[in-house]
Computed example of a mutant assay.
Amino acid sequence: MSNFMSGSKSINALPHRDLPMRPETSAEPPQRPRHRVRVLAKKPVKPGDSFGVPGQGSSLAASMFTILALFGLWFAVTNLHLIKPLFLPSPQAVYAKFILVATDGFANSTLAQHTGISLLRVFGAFALACLTAIPVGVMMGVSRIARGLFDPPIEFYRPLPPLAYLPLIIIWFGIGEFSKVFLIYLAIFAPLAIAARAGVRSVSIEQIHAAYSMGASRTQVVLYVILKSAMPEIFTGMRIGIGVGWTTLVAAEMVASTSGLGFMVLNAAEFLASDVVIMGIIVIGFFALCFDVLMRYVERVLVPWKGKV
């Protein structure tokens, strides 16, 4: 204790001139700490940015490269005369035929008329399939009786190619416009109904129990819980169904048609007009691609929770 007191006295005994003197007044105002100016604000981290989810990111550059590579290969092969124009016409010949058919027409109809008839058939059948297949698929998912009634016929005819039951449709309904639309409708109905059923069956049971515990009725659970949770699968079925519908278009327009893209392709093939055939294939693929892009956009708007819950 005496040592501590002696130490403290010795410290106090130091002259004041040895201690740093603090100025009483300062001419300059106290400076505030400087903060860095952040040019770019922090963005929320997307799921998978830290660890890298397989397949994440935009594939637009790779898609454009693939399209340009295929087009360049087509241009090089045809202009170097490695393949005869009868089997594969050049892009210039296909474009010239496109302008000719768009202005003068082919088989007594212009390209716009052929396209309009085919779009009316495909999208008319698609609308009818959406109005019937989605409710049937939902009923198959929520009711074992409905599943027992609809599942056997759908699973039976689903793997059959449309050309297999095309003669039967002609015998039953004739060769009018209804038989063409009905054939495309059957091709779209099966994948759309199965997708709706799969979406209903994938709903979490905890969500259903939570809705019932909060006093929801069975109808409210189906409309506001099950149907909303099944929307991603339903949109996938719609995209698959419209692709199958475009595939069936050629088969449907084999039945006593006088217009349509499928009819144009078949009629041109009989006369070995390969430039018209390729042009028709490109037009069909273009509209199918545009509809698929449109469906993806609508899905992002209406089902923003897909892949996040």
Rank of each mutant, 00 (worst) to 15 (best):
R158Y: 12
S259N: 12
A190R: 09
G199L: 10
T132K: 10
A125V: 01
A210C: 03
P153W: 12
V283Y: 14
A93E: 11
N12P: 08
M64L: 13
A196T: 06
F173R: 05
I117K: 03
S2A: 13
P85R: 06
N12D: 12
M214K: 02
I208K: 07
S58C: 08
P167E: 06
I205W: 12
N3V: 15
D292A: 10
I208L: 02
N108M: 05
L70H: 14
L163W: 14
P23R: 03
T236G: 15
I169N: 03
Y212K: 04
I154H: 13
A27H: 05
L88V: 10
M279I: 00
D275G: 02
Y95L: 08
E28Q: 01
M139I: 02
K42A: 13
V255M: 12
A13Q: 13
R17E: 15
A69F: 13
F291P: 01
L68A: 11
A251D: 04
A164V: 04
F291L: 09
A273K: 06
G174D: 14
P44G: 07
P191E: 06
A69R: 14
G262R: 07
Y185L: 06
A190W: 10
M139Y: 14
T25H: 01
R147M: 01
L86F: 11
F4Q: 12
G237A: 09
V138W: 13
A102F: 15
Y165C: 03
T103M: 06
K9H: 14
I134Q: 08
M64F: 12
T247G: 10
R121P: 07
F287E: 11
E28D: 05
S8V: 03
G55A: 04
S6T: 03
A93Q: 10
H35E: 08
G307M: 09
F189I: 00
K42P: 07
G280W: 03
I11W: 13
Y185S: 01
I11R: 09
F75E: 00
I184V: 12
I194T: 02
R121M: 13
I281T: 03
Q113V: 08
L19M: 08
V221S: 04
G262V: 01
I171H: 03
P191Q: 04
K97D: 15
K308Y: 15
R36P: 01
A195R: 02
L163S: 12
N79I: 11
T115A: 12
H114Y: 05
S10V: 11
P20G: 06
P44I: 04
E233H: 13
M1R: 15
F291A: 11
F291C: 08
S257K: 07
L80F: 14
G7H: 13
S202M: 05
V250A: 06
I171Q: 07
T66P: 10
R201F: 03
I278L: 05
Y95I: 10
L223E: 02
P153N: 10
F173L: 06
A76H: 08
A96H: 06
A187R: 04
V136H: 15
G105F: 15
R147P: 00
F75Q: 05
V222M: 00
I226L: 05
A187C: 02
V203T: 02
V222S: 00
T219F: 13
G243F: 02
I11E: 01
H114I: 01
I282G: 09
F75A: 11
M64V: 15
A62W: 09
R197T: 02
P135D: 05
R201K: 08
V277I: 05
K306F: 08
L227G: 07
R197L: 02
R296Q: 15
